[in-house]
Design a protein around this nucleic acid. Sequence first.
DNA 1: CCATCTTTGTGCACGCGTTCACAAAGACAT
DNA 2: ATGTCTTTGTGAACGCGTGCACAAAGATGG
Lengths: 256, 256
Amino acid sequence: MATGRTHRPATRSRGIPEATVARLPLYLRALTALSERSVPTVSSEELATAAGVNSAKLRKDFSYLGSYGTRGVGYDVEYLVYQISRELGLTQDWPVVIVGIGNLGAALANYGGFASRGFRVAALIDADPAMAGKPVAGLPVRHTDELEEIVTENGVSIGVIATPAGAAQQVCDRLVAAGITSILNFAPTVLSVPDGVDVRKVDLSIELQILAFHEQRKAGDETAAVRRTGTAGRPAAAAREGRKGPDGDVPAVMPA
Amino acid sequence: MATGRTHRPATRSRGIPEATVARLPLYLRALTALSERSVPTVSSEELATAAGVNSAKLRKDFSYLGSYGTRGVGYDVEYLVYQISRELGLTQDWPVVIVGIGNLGAALANYGGFASRGFRVAALIDADPAMAGKPVAGLPVRHTDELEEIVTENGVSIGVIATPAGAAQQVCDRLVAAGITSILNFAPTVLSVPDGVDVRKVDLSIELQILAFHEQRKAGDETAAVRRTGTAGRPAAAAREGRKGPDGDVPAVMPA
DNA sequence: CCATCTTTGTGCACGCGTTCACAAAGACAT
DNA sequence: ATGTCTTTGTGAACGCGTGCACAAAGATGG
């Protein structure tokens, strides 16, 4: 039982670099927008700008998929949308279960971008018996006891964990035992999973802390370079010391 | 006006590599847990396991901060907690505003890990007049009109955008104009910001699509290596073609 | 059919991040 | 004091990702 590696094995899957895979959804989104505006073709330059990346990088990324462009013209939007969708496996429907229907779980359940992007919420699962049967986003919440049954019957291979940190590993183990091989983890915990199971982690607190680091740095540079925006680099609130409350097991984004 | 670069400039801040900065919160969390269990010291090996990383990487990461360990013994937990907190700028209090109080915004507002980690929700802001004044997580929702005033008066430098995609850029512009220099963006859009402003992006849909890619790959390998877990690699639901609904402007994780 | 112009696809070089492997440093026992 | 044992801190090698810069490919007009 390998210890949870939060990211993919460094191994590139089928020759497509992991970094490229991570950008494909970005391109797909930009392309979908163009498609809706009935734009027939785009150049790598335009598309790159729309996706917020470098055009050389975009071209290199696409080159891993094949030669889908026409020199002197650009890329056919519809065709590219199809190719990327296929590459990402979005031409099929992925049933997903969400475990932990607190504030965040409910928010995820209501997420409109699910169905339209190839994902379907198969079930919402919560440990609280009081929640059972209660409709959230049009689906009745099921109790944790039924987890294995739900996963098996619906052929679910992707699970979303939105439980408090304390419950995450246990839920993860049950999901994996039930046959799930991909997990999106919102709980602030390092999950341990067997080989062959992918885990991706989303952590609000970590993102904020990274921002704080850079923010602090900017404030420290105060004396040096003057910021372009006159108001930036504000002194912020007074520093205090005794921080560090008791929150070891705080849920990701959960009921207080 | 530079186009939004979702990640830090490749420049390492004050000699600390960006990749290391991104892991510091992970270490901090593991250390906090140890601290609460009154563990006095840890070896790089133990801590690395707890944080889900390689021990060599952890040691190298710490080496950028200084020599805080004792050879033959390990690291002093409390001391390290303090050093990392300081490095991340968490010894001071960061006021944060959340814009867009839909499902996700409310979930974020209720997030317990805020206050205890050096962050304080200064205000909740929404464009819907009907929301104004309504208490969410103990704070009255303020109207967008007051945005600039709120940011200025509270000296807020970090903003969280949880609005629908269509409103994100506009909100971003106003936040930046009001003096905010760090943004955590939950809307599925590429934000354009001037130099000196940091943007980090959290995107559920992208994470799921990356998982789908690997999941599809596993299913494709079916014939090849047999999965360790007997149940994995299930055939999943039948493929279908006509996917691709109209959702160009779909909110990040918002009211349907 | 040829010249020109646009845009792709990619070879190459560079830099960052990861990992190995080991010397230096200190604790602890004798 | 000296030797042994543990664990840190880091030099060095390697591999991945990025970006430049250009040749190849095709469209388009004359």
